[in-house]
Amino acid sequence: MNQRLIDVIDRASAANSAEARVAAFDWGALTGELDSYGCAVLPKLLSPAECRNIAALYPDGSHFRSHIIMAGHGFGKGEYRYFKYPLPDLIGGIRTALYPHLASIANEWNARMGMDQRFPADHASYLQHCHDAGQTKPTPLLLQYAPGDFNCLHQDLYGDLWFPVQVAILLSEPDRDFTGGEFALTEQRPRMQSRVEVVPLRQGDAVAFAVHNRPVQGAKGNYRVNLRHGVSRIRSGMRHTVGIIFHDAR
């Protein structure tokens, strides 16, 4: 069997595995969490071995298209690398498998907020829209934090087209590999103080969260709230995370 055929089989196997594990979650409950709080945890999306294997990719620049030092851009302190296409099979498979579930939520949110944009049911079609708009660079990334590092509150918007939900997967184990480094989400409601949601995660857990806006039901109908996300200061050890962003960038 030649290497090209082996690679095709491996990608198909990874895609099937990703689809099965994503489908096993209670998406009704997850949708309720996202509607209520702007985020939802997908526990044990990746195994410890998968987490270690992905984190081990970080030093090898051949997997990535760019390397960002956060301090140089005012993003905080730490660093990350954007994967290049083709993505690692597991990350690409998870991205593809998650998208239809999240697209359904995004379409409902846009309808409630009075926004016209709707997202296609499959990820390949959405990526084609991005590419037609000149957004062709892959956005999944691998982040690395050392003691004293943090990520400022921000929104991952990379062009005219952006997807309203993204996912972060914690690859390191809290209190063993690192301390500190909590994932935090802030929500600004009109004429109100910001609400903070701190999301406890273990190794392999993923959090799906709103990128920019989400609808909230008020006394006079739905209104938009604005969200930002970040990571608190790492106090010791090393923290690795995979970020899965569903739109491509310019």
Score class of each variant (00 low, 15 high):
N2Y: 05
Q3R: 05
Q3D: 11
Q3K: 08
R4S: 13
R4G: 05
I6R: 01
D7P: 00
A12C: 10
A14K: 06
A14I: 09
A15E: 12
S17I: 05
S17E: 10
E19D: 12
A20M: 04
F25C: 02
F25K: 02
F25W: 10
G28Y: 00
T31K: 01
T31Y: 00
G32P: 07
G32N: 12
G32R: 11
S36Q: 08
G38R: 00
C39W: 04
A40M: 06
P43C: 07
A49H: 05
A49T: 14
A49Y: 00
E50N: 01
Y58R: 01
P59D: 03
S62Q: 00
F64P: 00
R65C: 00
R65F: 00
S66I: 02
I68C: 01
M70D: 02
A71M: 03
A71T: 08
F75H: 10
F75T: 11
E79V: 05
Y80R: 13
F83A: 07
K84V: 11
P88M: 09
L90I: 13
I91T: 06
I91E: 09
G93W: 00
G93K: 05
G93T: 05
R95W: 01
T96S: 14
A97E: 02
H101T: 06
S104L: 08
I105E: 00
D116T: 11
D122G: 02
D122H: 11
S125T: 15
S125Q: 12
Y126F: 12
L127Y: 04
Q128E: 15
C130R: 06
C130H: 02
C130W: 02
H131M: 04
G134S: 11
T136I: 14
T139D: 14
T139N: 08
T139V: 14
L142A: 06
L143P: 07
A146F: 07
P147M: 08
D149N: 14
C152E: 06
H154N: 04
L161S: 04
L161P: 03
W162M: 10
F163G: 13
A168W: 00
S172P: 04
D175L: 04
D177C: 03
D177H: 08
G180P: 02
G181M: 06
E182Y: 07
A184F: 06
Q188A: 12
P190F: 07
R191K: 09
M192V: 10
S194I: 09
R195A: 10
E197M: 13
V198T: 14
V198N: 11
Q203V: 13
V207T: 10
V211D: 12
V211Q: 13
R214P: 13
Q217W: 13
A219W: 04
G221F: 11
R224S: 15
R224Y: 09
V225E: 12
L227A: 10
H229N: 06
V231Y: 05
S232H: 14
R233K: 14
H240Y: 15
T241P: 11
T241G: 10
V242S: 05
I245P: 02
I245E: 07
F246H: 09
D248Q: 13
A249W: 08
R250N: 15
R250P: 14
